[in-house]
C-alpha cells in the first residue's frame, strides 16, 4: 500500500514542478474563447480531483480496515443486501455534479459558438480557411488577398473563420486562441475566435489526414489594427496575383512553405454549398454561383 502513495505523491510533485516552469498552451489562453475553455477545464479538473480523492480515501479506508490480516481468523463477513439510502446518495451527488457541469457546459457552448461578447460591437473579420493535402489556404475576401500556411490577424477584433477542405477532413486549431473545428469538403463551418494580445501563436491541423499530417501547421501573428492594415497594404503592393493555374499547382499534394498572393481563390473556386445551421442565412446569396461546382 505504501508504494502507491509514495508513487502518487512523487508523480504529482514532478508534475507541479514541470507545469510551474512553462504553462501548458491550452491553459495559457490569449483570446476570449480559449479563456472560456480554459476556465471550464480548470473547473472540471477541480471537481474531478475532488471525486477522485473521495474514491481514493474510501478505497484506502476499506482496504486498510477490512483486510484479512487485520481480522480474526474466524471472522465471517455478514450478508448485506444494499441500502436505499446509500444508493440514493451514490446517485444523488453525481447527478448534482453532472447537472452543474451540464449548465456550465451548455452556457460555454453558446459562448464559443458565437462572436466573443467582449468584441461584439467590433466588425468581424472574415477569413476563409481551406486545407488541401497538406497546406492551409487563407483567403481575406475583404482585403482581396490570400496567404498560404500563415495568418495575420488584428487583435481585439472578432474573427470568423469559414472552414472547408479540398480532400480529407481536417481540423483547424490555434490552441491559445480557442478550440478546434473541422474543415470538410461538402460543408462550410464557422469558427469564432479573437486575440486579446499581440503575439505569435501556433496553429495546426489536428485531424489526421495522411502522410503529411505532422507538418500540416501554420503560424499565427496577431498584431494591432494599424500594423495589420500596414501589412495588408504591403501585400497588395508586393505580392503576385493568384491565378487559377497557380492555385491548381498549390492544390497538388505536398508541402509548399509560406506564400502570399493578391486576389483570392474564392473567385474561381467557390467554397462548398452545404452550410452549418447558423451561418446558412448569411451565405445563402452565394448559393447560385456555388451550384456550378457540383
Amino acid at each position: 500500500m505504501k508504494n502507491r502513495w509514495i508513487k502518487l505523491i512523487g508523480f504529482f510533485t514532478i508534475v507541479t514542478m514541470l507545469t510551474g516552469c512553462d504553462p501548458l498552451l491550452v491553459l495559457d489562453p490569449k483570446g476570449p474563447q480559449a479563456e472560456v475553455q480554459a476556465k471550464d477545464i480548470m473547473l472540471s479538473i477541480g471537481i474531478m480531483s475532488f471525486i477522485v480523492l473521495i474514491v481514493f480515501v474510501i478505497l484506502a479506508y476499506m482496504l486498510f480496515k477490512y483486510r484479512a490480516s487485520k481480522q480474526s481468523p474466524d471472522y465471517k463477513p455478514p450478508y448485506i443486501e444494499g441500502s436505499t439510502l446509500v444508493e440514493v446518495i451514490c446517485v444523488g451527488i453525481p447527478v448534482l455534479i453532472v447537472i452543474y457541469l451540464s449548465v456550465v457546459s451548455v452556457d460555454s457552448n453558446y459562448k464559443v459558438e458565437s462572436t466573443p461578447e467582449k468584441y461584439e460591437h467590433e466588425e468581424p473579420l472574415i477569413i476563409y480557411a481551406a486545407t488541401s493535402n497538406w497546406k492551409w489556404h487563407f483567403s481575406y475576401p475583404e482585403e482581396n488577398i490570400e496567404t498560404v500556411n500563415y495568418l495575420y490577424i488584428p487583435v481585439e477584433r472578432p474573427i470568423e473563420f469559414k472552414l472547408y477542405s479540398y480532400g480529407p477532413i481536417t481540423s483547424f486549431w490555434i490552441p491559445q486562441l480557442g478550440g478546434q473545428k473541422y474543415a470538410m469538403a461538402d460543408m462550410l463551418n464557422t469558427l469564432h475566435l479573437a486575440a486579446d494580445y499581440p503575439g505569435e501563436y501556433m496553429g495546426r491541423n489536428a485531424n489526421f489526414n495522411g502522410k503529411g499530417f505532422t507538418e500540416n501547421t501554420f503560424n499565427v501573428t496577431a498584431v494591432h489594427q494599424d500594423e495589420y492594415d500596414e501589412w495588408v497594404n504591403d501585400v497588395k503592393d508586393t505580392a503576385e496575383t493568384l491565378t487559377e493555374e497557380k492555385f491548381d499547382t498549390l492544390l497538388e499534394p505536398g508541402h509548399v512553405g509560406q506564400s502570399t498572393f493578391n486576389g483570392t481563390h474564392l473567385m474561381f473556386l467557390p467554397p462548398p454549398v452545404h452550410v452549418g445551421e447558423e451561418v446558412e442565412a448569411a451565405i445563402s446569396e452565394d448559393d447560385e454561383s456555388q451550384q456550378n461546382k457540383n
Binding site: 472540471s44 457546459s105 459562448k111 486549431w173 478550440g179
Partner: peptide, 19 residues
C-alpha cells in the same frame, strides 16, 4: 473515467479533441 466527464463538456472538448 473522470477525464471522460471532462471530455464530455463539449466547449472544452474543442481543446481536447484530437490531442
Amino acid at each position: 473515467g473522470v477525464t471522460g466527464v471532462m471530455l464530455g463538456m463539449s466547449a472544452a472538448d474543442y481543446q481536447y479533441h484530437n490531442t
